[in-house]
């Protein structure tokens, strides 16, 4: 096994699938010769050639349409959208077209496409680069949405996404790209889509989070253990659509208290969906209202205010105190 950062694990997943399946194609803006603005595709064009790994003109809707057409002819496109805010240019391709190809054709056509895009707060990038748009994506029927929080999951989930016969939006949190390394197996393994993971066991309250907020929540859980001796369970959703209700509900039934943490603004987001799910399936087990920890309902903040905008361990800790004291 090798120590890898998340970005290295992502490159390794792409390499593994390019080598395994000749139908896998990797493309986008600057992904070929240059290896991507984050080097996610570093060395892949050299290894697999320009037919498999290539640059496209600078046009996100075109990239999305290209992916759909290639899927119709039996390829498995992995299309990079250079930064998350650029998906606004490709919303029809992603949310209007790829997600509905199977449905509109009654199963005759399918779109085994992976859209990859960096997102997330913490690197002080330019506007329209770091937004949390997963709510828009997760609300789209027919589109799976995956958000890894660590290198191991990133590789296993990306391999699963490439092999999936439905379109998957794979969100890569920029702050996690190089923030830590961990053991990542070489070669082939998968982490299933649609399965959350209990990353910290506990009995007193449940925190449901994804992406970078998993790490923020783990810090808060440690703080709670230290200050009041309560044991907080932390769930990493890993997939936002389809949601793993089973893991969430089993935990809430055990702990009786839950908060949901998301980096995105509060309104109509994934946290609201998870809270509703808990209400529907476990309300009689609840000892306290399900709280959301989210960013305020403003567009993704200016870089110089992002540290204040994004939920931090203190805000998660405060919410945990609130449900534990209820």
């Amino acid at each position: 096994m090798a120590q890898m950062t998340m970005i290295q694990a992502i490159t390794d997943a792409l390499r593994t699938e390019l080598a395994r399946d000749p139908n896998v194609l990797v493309f986008g803006e600057d992904v070929g010769h240059y290896g991507g603005v984050f080097r996610a595709t570093e060395g892949l064009q050299k290894e697999f050639g320009e037919e498999r790994v290539f640059d496209t003109p600078l046009a996100e809707s075109g990239i999305g349409g290209l992916a759909i057409g290639l899927a119709v002819t039996g390829f498995r496109p992995v299309a990079e959208i250079q930064f998350i805010g650029f998906i606004f240019e490709a919303m029809d391709s992603i949310c209007g077209q790829a997600s509905r190809l199977r449905f509109r054709s009654g199963g005759r056509y399918r779109a085994p496409i992976v859209f990859r895009s960096p997102f997330g707060v913490g690197v002080k990038a330019a506007e329209y680069h770091t937004d949390n748009l997963e709510g828009l994506l997760a609300q789209t029927p027919g589109l799976k949405v995956v958000v890894p929080s660590n290198p191991y999951d990133a590789k296993g989930l990306l391999i699963s996404a490439i092999r999936d016969d439905d379109p998957v939006f794979f969100l890569e949190h920029m702050k996690l790209y190089r923030s830590f390394r961990e053991e990542v197996p070489e070669g082939d393994y998968t982490v299933p889509i649609g399965k959350a993971k209990v990353v910290r066991e506990g009995t007193d309250a449940t925190v449901i989070a994804y992406g970078a907020m998993v790490h923020t929540s783990l810090k808060a859980a440690e703080e709670i253990a230290k200050t009041r001796g309560a044991q907080v369970e932390v769930i990493d959703l890993r997939t936002l659509n389809p949601l793993d209700a089973e893991t969430i509900i089993a935990s809430v039934k055990k702990t009786g208290r839950a908060i949901v943490v998301q980096e995105a603004q509060r309104i109509a987001g994934v946290a609201a969906e998870v809270a509703a799910l808990i209400n529907e399936k476990a309300i009689l087990h609840l000892e306290a209202p399900v709280l959301r920890v989210a960013s305020p309902d403003i567009p993704f903040s200016f870089p110089l205010a992002e540290d204040e905008w994004v939920p931090n361990p203190a805000r998660v800790t405060a919410a945990l105190h609130e449900v534990l004291d209820f």
Binding site: G65, I68, G69, T73, D92, Q97
Partner: peptide
């Protein structure tokens, strides 16, 4: 969706070419 078929058509054409 007016025009969506044109970018997709480029993709199908690329598929045949590949």
């Amino acid at each position: 969706i007016i025009g969506a078929q044109i970018v997709q058509a480029a993709g199908v054409a690329m598929g045949f070419k590949k």
